[in-house]
């Protein structure tokens, strides 16, 4: 897993406590509204997102930047850069 620090996001999808597969559905919607090169931050407490989000990026040609390094017991922060 790739870790990142101090990434500034242009938009945030807060999926904490919201059930699977909201961690995929809402980011897909939000990324449509971003410009090329902008960063989307995904907050989720769902462990499966650590596999699903990088896999979705690989499949859809978006860049998975990594997981926030600051460990939070409650949720993960994942970052995607919009490439197209």
């Amino acid at each position: 897993m790739r870790f990142v620090t101090e990434l500034k996001a242009d938009a945030t999808a807060d999926l904490v406590y919201r059930v699977c597969p909201m961690h995929l559905l809402e980011p897909v919607d939000l990324i449509k509204d971003l410009k090329q090169g902008q960063v989307l931050e995904i907050l989720t407490d769902y462990d499966g997102a650590l596999e699903d989000i990088p896999a979705w990026c690989a499949k859809n040609g978006q860049e998975f930047l990594g997981v926030g390094e600051e460990e939070d017991e409650e949720y993960y922060k994942l970052y995607i850069r919009k490439l197209h």
């Binding site: 807060d14 999926l15 904490v16 406590y17 919201r18 059930v19 699977c20 909201m22 559905l25 809402e26």
Partner: peptide, 20 residues
């Protein structure tokens, strides 16, 4: 907005994942 809720009816993604 931005307030988090733990669903009380566990289920699918109805109501944007907040109420199954």
């Amino acid at each position: 907005q931005k307030l988090r809720l733990v669903p009380q009816i566990h289920g699918g993604i109805q109501e944007n994942g907040r109420r199954g």
